[in-house]
Design a protein around this nucleic acid. Structure first.
Length: 872
DNA sequence: TGTGTCACG
DNA sequence: ACGTACGTGACACAC
């Protein structure tokens, strides 16, 4: 039988909006602040309804105009809350989406979507179609018959309840005709339909089971006893009016024809662009799947040394496809190679055993292009192979052009440069537990296609880098840094396994004791690690005064707990428990899980991830090892140098403030720094007009100095230094009058950002700030703070990176055994043999200080120890 | 998978 | 009326 799908657009749209706009939810938005939550949920539902084999369908919408129902009953739908602005803004998007799917849309002034659906349903059923209606409005159940099925969306939108005459009767013990009378009797608050006051669903069903129809109920009204009978007699007219209102018009005067309901072609490429623009990437991925790319190019599988020998030459793009993001333990899935004209695939076995290939990759005089040089280089180091003289890295280049791209996957990066001949990794390999290799031809081609993309994007990206004056940044900073980081990661950091065991055992025991004590004090056992359970115990069972609440319950963070210390002895224990369990699970267990057979941890420095230009570290994160509390700091004893070596650490003193002093040309700061004054004390002296600064004053001055770097606000500063927002504001004003150049800088940089849509660092690293154009205040304010902070944080990152490259080259040139092993944003840690200790104590801090020439000196400190704990 | 929490610069 | 400092990563829990 021919199938016709009729969709109640309004009803589904509302359901889509409210499914994702529950109280406290943060509505989904694009970077520009366009709301997309309703669209997102609508598409999800729509895709389930409209499938590839749908041939006939219609989406019906209401219009704003009054309807016939308003004419007979002016209170119709009165009191209904206005459509939220956030939803109204999405209606054009939803319409646009439907149009792109090829499904016809219809609406007509004076008619509700219900009436359009009712009328078309009957017409189609008469014409021999089987009709499937989709809505979340139970009113439509009156349309059910042998040829019309109504599907009601359930709450989570995950499933639908399907009603045909049989299931309808099973569910309500009523026929479809009786559904109308049911509503007429009980009314409907959401549409402001009165029904008979005092009659609800239960009573209405009972009446209909006895008398079958509303008319028959009214006819026999005198038989009905008691209050109910009185009410029916009294409100007979209301019931009749209600019936008129709830009856769907199945013969509406609409010019929509069955022939108009043919589904058109999906406008695939436009739809992809639509989703891309609205940052709904999940749907973009789904679209890519069935639209396999035009196979307008061929690749060749290279299987022997002879063939390989013929294709190896300078300036090939080479892509190593690895099974896992953690390349220290990943396996190779294949290698893609291209010279721009011919494209090749190498199997993992061949690539890793070929002598020709090994020689080629390690050759320092042959230039190569790749994507994620560091990943390939480290992977190959584990295979005892080298990868040298890479002069173009697609990942790093894209990251420099727009630092937001670094977080994206290969496909999304290249598609940003309008290169579309690439599929998503998810689509090829699956994801999560299901990740694996598909058919040979599919993944070989995918891997070769990546090499092709690297090659073809090289020229345009280099051109753009040149225009943005960033070639230096790529060639002399990021690519050399990849080599430095590769060696650091591969070298790894040795862990004292005995210390790990001792600290682990100690922490475990103390945690068990604390847990028991906490349970005793609470008078009940519960999971102390569960913020939910803890909140209930503290604020309901123990009735402690609760502070702020979170989305899901009571807040139990350190701040809240500290304020509760005096109320109950349990709090101190909980704070201890929290601290120790953090140390145990994140650091002791974290390190243990990431230990390699060589007794070391091999972190991964993400070189193209942060939007500011900093590195980040993972598996394990070695950039957040505790130091602020003595208890936590002991974790640093786990990390030791190799035998007969020392750890040497050197860090910049207040590099970000110095960068600010330089970039904003702040006379007062420059002078203070160059006289080696304590900058916070100096600031306090100026701000408070005193010679002798007390610790409170210094703390406040320090908070402002920091706050300035983050794009300070009076409110947050007041929280930080415990004064009223007004006092904090006065404090900031005073600060800015002492350092007027900072005030100018703040204004200038925000204006620059608004004009150019980006800000840049000393070394021309860019960060685009789309939030500045957002209509949403919080987004825009965030953009302004970012404009202030990114150049400072980013320049400091540039400088340390430069120092790393300089130092690495020095060590290499002078054939030193000392090597860099850690970078923590403003400090470097090296492993140094005793014989080089004295030299390195000189060289390392000096190279860091001289990495760049600023208007202020870059001071550095230097410490040596036999474990990380001993540094500083 | 999202949330709360907390470790670092 | 509203928000309420920049940049990260990891863990446990709850759904």
């Amino acid at each position: 039988m021919k199938k016709m799908i009729l969709i109640d657009g309004n009803s589904i749209m509302f359901r889509a909006y409210y499914a994702t706009a529950y109280p406290g939810a943060k509505l989904m938005q694009t970077g520009q602040g366009i709301y997309t939550n309703a669209l997102f949920a609508f598409v999800g539902m729509f895709e389930k309804i409209i499938t590839e084999d749908t041939t006939n369908a219609l989406v019906a919408f209401d219009t704003k105009e009054p309807t016939k129902r308003h004419e007979v009953y002016k209170e119709y739908k009165a009191g209904r809350i206005k459509m939220p602005e956030e939803l109204a803004m999405q209606i054009p998007l939803i319409n646009q989406y439907i149009e792109l799917t090829g499904v016809p849309i219809y609406s007509k002034a004076g008619y509700e979507a219900d009436d359009i659906i009712g009328t078309m349903a009957k017409r189609c059923a008469k014409d021999g179609y089987h009709v499937e209606i989709y809505s979340s409005d139970r009113d439509l159940l009156q349309l059910v018959d042998d040829r019309i099925t109504v599907n009601l969306l359930k709450k989570g939108m995950r499933e639908v309840a399907r009603f045909d005459p049989k299931t309808l009767f099973e569910t309500y013990q009523l026929t479809h005709e009786q559904m109308i009378d049911l509503k007429a009797l009980m009314g409907d608050t959401s549409d402001n339909i009165p029904g008979i006051p005092g009659v609800g669903e239960k009573t209405a069903v009972k009446l209909l089971q006895e008398y079958e129809t509303l008319e028959n109920v009214l006819e026999h009204k005198d038989e009905i006893k008691g209050k109910l009978g009185e009410r029916i007699k009294e409100h007979e007219e209301l019931a009749k009016l209600s019936k008129q209102l709830v009856t769907i018009d199945v013969d509406a005067d609409i010019e929509c024809q069955i022939s108009d309901l043919e589904k058109g072609e999906v406008k695939t490429s436009e739809l992809i662009t639509f989703f891309q623009n609205l940052e709904l990437h999940v749907f973009v991925k789904k679209m890519e799947e069935p639209t396999a790319k035009m196979e307008s190019w061929e690749y060749k599988v290279i299987e022997d040394e002879h063939e390989l020998g013929k294709i190896l030459k300078p300036e090939l793009a080479i892509h190593f496809e690895l099974s896992d993001y953690n390349y220290h333990k990943a396996e190779l899935w294949g290698v893609g190679i291209t010279d721009g004209k011919h494209h090749y695939f190498l199997s993992p076995d061949f690539a890793l055993t070929s002598i020709n290939f090994q020689m080629y990759l390690s050759d320092e005089s042959i230039k190569k292009f790749t994507y994620d040089y560091k990943a390939a280089k480290v992977f190959l180091l584990w295979q005892n192979m080298e990868f040298n003289n890479v002069v173009f890295d697609l990942l790093l280049s894209a990251y420099l052009i727009n630092s937001h791209l670094g977080k994206e996957e290969f496909k999304r990066i290249v598609s940003n440069f309008d290169y579309e001949d690439i599929l998503y990794d998810d689509v090829i390999y699956g994801k999560g537990a299901k990740k694996g290799l598909p058919e040979k031809e599919i993944y070989e081609r995918h891997i070769a296609s990546k090499a092709k993309a690297i090659f073809e994007l090289r020229d345009p990206l280099l051109k753009q880098l040149k225009e943005q004056e960033q070639l230096h940044l790529l060639n002399d900073l990021e690519i050399p840094l990849s080599e430095v980081l590769a060696e650091m990661e591969y070298s790894g950091l040795l862990v004292d396994q005995n210390e790990l065991k001792i600290q682990g055992k100690d922490l475990k025991e103390r945690l068990e004791t604390l847990e028991k004590e906490i349970h005793e004090l609470a008078g009940i056992t519960f999971n102390v690690s569960s913020p939910k359970q803890l909140g209930e115990i503290l604020f309901e069972k123990l009735e402690l005064p609760h502070g702020k609440k979170t989305k899901t319950g009571y807040s139990t963070n350190v701040e809240v707990l500290n304020d509760l210390q005096k109320h109950h002895p349990i709090i101190e224990k909980i704070l201890d428990y929290r601290q120790l369990s953090k140390l145990h699970s994140t650091y002791i267990e974290g390190v243990r899980q990431n230990l390699f057979e060589d007794g070391k941890v091999h972190t991964i420095y993400m070189q193209a991830l942060t939007t500011t230009g900093r590195l980040s570290s993972l598996d394990p994160n070695l950039q957040n090892i505790p130091i602020r509390t003595e208890e936590g700091r002991k974790i640093r004893k786990l990390f030791i140098p190799e035998e007969n070596k020392y750890l040497l650490g050197s860090d910049y003193s207040q590099i970000e403030l110095r960068v600010l002093a330089d970039m904003a040309n702040v006379k007062g700061l420059i002078e203070a720094f160059n006289h080696h004054e304590d900058i916070h004390t100096k600031t306090a002296q100026e701000v408070f007009h005193v010679d002798e600064v007390n610790s409170e004053q210094r703390r406040a001055a320090k908070a402002v100095n920091f706050g300035i770097i983050y794009g300070i606000g009076a409110w947050s500063l007041s929280e930080d230094i415990n004064v009223t927002p007004k006092e904090a504001q006065a404090f900031i004003d005073q600060y800015l009058s002492i350092y007027p150049e900072i005030k100018d800088y703040m204004e200038n940089i925000v204006n620059f950002a608004k004009e150019n849509k980006y800000v840049e660092t000393i070394m021309k690293r860019r960060r685009y700030i789309p939030e500045l154009e957002s209509p949403v205040y919080t987004q825009r304010s965030f953009g302004e703070r970012t404009a202030l902070n990114a150049p400072i944080q980013g320049s400091a990152a540039d400088i340390l990176k430069k120092a790393m490259v300089d130092l690495y080259q020095y060590l290499k040139k002078n054939k030193k055994q000392s090597k860099l092993i850690l970078q923590v944003h403003d400090e470097l840690i090296l492993e140094v043999p005793e014989s080089e200790l004295e030299e390195m104590k000189e060289v390392v801090p000096k190279m860091m200080s001289k990495a760049i020439q600023l208007k202020v000196e870059l001071e550095t400190s230097c410490d040596v120890g036999t474990n990380w704990y001993e540094l500083k």
